[in-house]
């Protein structure tokens, strides 16, 4: 069975010309870790809010565990867990009080589903008497995850759980998601960080309310249309500029310590021609290697082609 089914969802907010969601359709399977990858304003939060029955789509149909988001909203609210983008717990209540409160709201208790949250809860247990507002970013995130899991939801919706969180905490968080997935919970997670895409089973790349591509991260990168190269020299800033002026260049983007480029046509001599060109422009220590495209390369390519 498909846990989440969206077909032709449209949503435009009042007073806005541009649609927040434009004909969005996809499905996620049972027990899948599905990632929604896109920048702020791409429509990720709108999509999550429609699926969690918080807002209504203008048109189209959405189902969670076979239940319609418009008509069966009461049923859906019983079986999903939701972690909004902003930290949304009571800052003036302690860790324990927050957990107990949400447990009662969902008609359960901390004990009942302790197994599910045990691994995460153990990490925040030493601070259980501390007010949620005084926890560090990473701890808050763990508490929020515990609260969203406390009723053993069938589907877990996590809206940008790692935004503003440092690289170390992010890694930890993805580790937790993996463990949850193994317990059979379907997870729909959104993120603006392209490097997190590889940690998902399948991903959808979303931009301006439109899904640009849906597949496994690996297949998406395989579908990159051109051979991609990484270039490096001693003057990276100037290199970017010079590369863009090279006649054979199709795309050129900075990628950390390399620039990723693709050529208009694939001729054998292009590589050497480029090297000669760069030497003439006073670059030294020039490196040019073929490189496998990442999700971010694909995202940029898809954005450019739209």
């Amino acid at each position: 069975m498909k846990d989440v089914v969206l077909s032709n969802i449209h949503k435009t907010y009042k007073g806005r010309d541009i649609p927040a969601l434009n004909d969005v359709s996809f499905e996620t399977g049972e027990g899948e870790l599905f990632g929604l990858i896109g920048p702020d304003g791409a429509g990720k939060t709108s999509l999550f809010r429609i699926l969690t029955t918080l807002i209504l789509p203008d048109s189209g149909c959405a189902k969670v565990c076979g239940k319609d988001v418009v008509n069966d909203y009461k049923e859906i609210r019983k079986i999903v867990g939701y972690m909004p983008g902003k930290f949304s717990l009571y800052q003036d209540l302690s860790v324990e009080e927050n957990l107990n409160f949400f447990a009662t709201v969902f008609n359960t208790s901390l004990k009942k589903n302790y197994d599910l949250i045990k691994d995460i809860y153990i990490q925040i247990e030493p601070f259980k008497k501390r007010r949620a507002g005084q926890l560090s970013g990473g701890m808050k995130q763990k508490l929020a995850l515990c609260c969203a899991l406390i009723h053993k939801p069938k589907v877990l919706f996590l809206d940008e759980p790692t935004t503003g969180v440092d690289a170390v905490s992010r890694k930890e968080f993805w580790g937790m998601l993996k463990a949850l997935k193994e317990q059979g919970i379907s997870i729909l997670v959104s993120t603006p960080y392209m490097d997190e895409a590889d940690l998902c089973d399948r991903i959808a790349l979303i931009q301006n309310g439109k899904i640009m591509s849906i597949d496994t991260p690996h297949s998406i990168t395989l579908n990159y249309p051109d051979p991609l190269y990484a270039v490096q020299s001693d003057q990276m800033g100037k290199l970017l500029h010079d590369l863009r002026n090279f006649r054979e260049i199709k795309s050129c983007n900075a990628f950390g310590d390399y620039h990723h480029i693709s050529f208009v046509s694939e001729r054998k001599e292009t590589g050497n021609e480029l090297k000669d060109y760069l030497l003439k422009k006073d670059h030294s220590n020039i490196k040019l290697n073929a490189v496998a495209p990442g999700i971010e390369d694909c995202f940029i390519q898809l954005m450019d082609s739209e």
């Binding site: 603006p192 970017l240 900075a254 971010e296 940029i300 954005m303 450019d304």
Partner: peptide, 24 residues
């Protein structure tokens, strides 16, 4: 202070172009 948080990858690079220019 985290000027590019949540910005799309294309615009993020354009933003860095501006940074390079200012630094020049």
């Amino acid at each position: 202070d985290e000027p590019t948080g949540g910005v799309d990858p294309v615009t993020r690079r354009q933003f860095w172009d501006l940074i390079y220019e200012a630094s020049d």
